[in-house]
Amino acid sequence: MRGARPSPTTPAARPAAPPRPPADLRRAARHHAAVPPPPPFRTGLVEALGAPALAMGATFLAFGAAVAEAGLSPAWALLSTGAVYGMAGQLVLLQAAGLPGAAALPAVVAATAANARFLPMSVAIAPLLGPRRPLWRRLAALPFIAITPWAAAMRRLPGLEESARLPWFLGFALASWCVAMAATAAGHLAAPALPAPLRAALLFANPLYFALLLAADLGRPGVRGAVIGGALAAPLALWLGPAWGLLAAGLVGGTGAFWLGRRTGRRA
């Protein structure tokens, strides 16, 4: 890397320094000076296969088993994971589908309300996916906007060059999606071998993962307010029930944090 640094004594003798790659790619390049840094798609894919894969895999394994217990087919389970791809809504839908004589429309409204976070999440991530890209390229990310890839991307994308962001997200998201699908299928198949206590413990992996991520966010001033606001507004969900409660808590806690942040920001 030293050779690329411009020298004050011979400014014209050296070519202009190339744009610096992101920190993780630079680290990898130092280890294997002759090997070019991995493409961002692969970096994202590999990053998804650690803690995020454990969190998603455990949750979707439990979901697959729950679908089998409700007497619904593996195809229903896979379509739910692959295309709804939002666990809160999937669980609401599963509960409603299991009720005898359940009407479809109330179940759809409740499941969509439980997953209504997709709207603000997509609004927030859209500028990070490259506003200068053609719309159809950004739409490639559409089916994969779910809480795990979103939470990782909101941390990771600002540090990447703009051209690397969409490929990184697609790598991370595709790996997460494949893990979710494989875990759902395995859960449906292995339902008899997964007793209820084990499935309950597996379900805990997801909130634990996000609890650790959010605990780290408490150190980031721009995000801290929303983390605290959401936690304080959480009791609203107990009052309103699982379908609308989460949406209401997010709206109240997030909007409160947003306004407080703007007021203190103006004063500063």
């Binding site: 976070r117 929303a226 959401g230 997010g250 709206l251 109240v252 806690g253």
Partner: peptide
């Protein structure tokens, strides 16, 4: 972004 983070936190 704040609403999304708050939803996750709740």
């Amino acid at each position: 972004s704040a609403v999304s983070v708050a939803t996750l936190s709740a």
